[in-house]
């Protein structure tokens, strides 16, 4: 995959405050890139530089190889921007809103009319065509804003906190819409400080804190590199005490917990009793897929009855806490 966005040592200062510190970011074409970080980490500053609204203090940002500082107009053709607020005009209907921005991007009248219809259809607002923008709900305004950012058919969409303040239904609709845009071949950069929002829809993530990029890459890769050991969830129907002893003795099991038990009380509890119901054990396992298979075979051979044996799916939230630990 070729990269659509590249920044080289991108730095931005506000007075003595360093908002971005030598940021080196790469976003491949066709990715949904989640930009995660606490409030004030530098997400909006990065996005404003990429949309040519703010000059960097030093460093370089390229979109499809075009420099944001040297050729801002060419960059504006490539980028659609949806800020974290929705700017409305009084006395304006939905179609007029899109028409105005279509004109602002120099789209010819005939194409504009056709495009407004298509985009309103895409964001499911065709029935609100003649409604005043002010009367739309927050979720609808957000979708109209997305349609606006698509008017000039940009290759890159930059969405700053698009899901903030949306109710769960509007959030799901937005997520579906973004998936559709990805199918259309758009590259999407989306920021949020809410991880669960991004976890399900992103192919790539970048974690930023205090202007520094702490980790970036494919979601799965990040999960792998930042969490070298796997957590295996084992539900034992019979032979729980035996299973616990076996797992503790296993060289690849770094740590063993009972689900629901507090970490510090580990090991000092009474042995598990099968009569008190099936127990779930969580093992931090430091080994590959084959070793995991061997572990399961060993447990079964030892007569342990298992109803569930699975690797826990990686959680961005854990990663985020792990990566940003100690800096805030």
């Amino acid at each position: 995959m070729t990269s659509l966005v590249e920044t080289h040592n991108l730095t931005r200062r506000y007075g003595s405050n360093l908002a971005l510190d030598h940021l080196n970011l790469t976003i491949p074409e066709g990715a949904i890139f989640g930009f995660i970080g606490p409030n004030g980490a530098g997400k909006t500053t990065t996005m404003r530089i990429l949309t040519t609204l703010l000059p960097p203090t030093s460093g370089e940002a390229l979109i499809a190889g075009v420099s944001v500082t040297r050729e801002p107009r060419a960059v504006r053709r490539l980028v659609g921007f949806m800020p974290d607020f929705f700017g409305v005009y009084d006395n304006m209907k939905s179609w007029e809103y899109l028409d105005f921005f279509g004109r602002s991007y120099g789209i010819p009248a005939q194409r504009r009319q056709q495009l407004i219809g298509e985009l309103l259809e895409l964001v499911d607002l065709a029935h609100k065509r003649d409604e005043p923008v002010m009367s739309l709900s927050r979720g609808m305004k957000q979708r109209l804003s997305l349609a606006r950012s698509m008017m000039h058919d940009p290759r890159l969409l930059i969405l700053d906190e698009p899901a903030s303040g949306l109710d769960p239904r509007a959030r799901i609709e937005l997520r579906e819409l973004l998936k559709e845009l990805r199918v259309m071949g758009k590259t999407i950069m989306i920021s949020s400080h809410i991880l669960s929002e991004l976890a399900e829809m992103c192919t790539h993530i970048g974690i930023i804190e205090r202007g520094k990029l702490l980790a970036a890459g494919e979601v799965q890769e990040i999960l792998r590199t930042l969490r070298p050991h796997r957590i295996v969830e084992i539900r034992v129907v019979a032979g729980a005490a035996h299973a616990e002893a076996l797992l503790r003795a296993h060289p690849d099991v770094l740590e063993l917990r009972r689900e629901g038990a507090r970490a510090e009380s580990d090991g000092q509890e009474a042995p598990l009793n099968d009569e008190t119901g099936p127990h779930t054990l969580l093992a931090d396992f430091d080994g590959d897929e084959h070793a995991l298979g061997d572990l399961l075979a060993m447990l079964i051979a030892e007569g342990v009855r298992i109803s569930h044996f699975a690797e826990q799916s990686g959680d961005l939230e854990d990663i985020f806490l792990h990566v940003t630990k100690g800096i805030v």
Binding site: T51, R76, P83, G87, S104, Y105
Partner: peptide, 16 residues
């Protein structure tokens, strides 16, 4: 007024 309505950035980021 464009700055107050937060539409100023949208205008400046367009091809106008």
């Amino acid at each position: 007024g464009e700055k107050e309505r937060q539409t100023y950035d949208l205008l400046v980021a367009s091809l106008l």
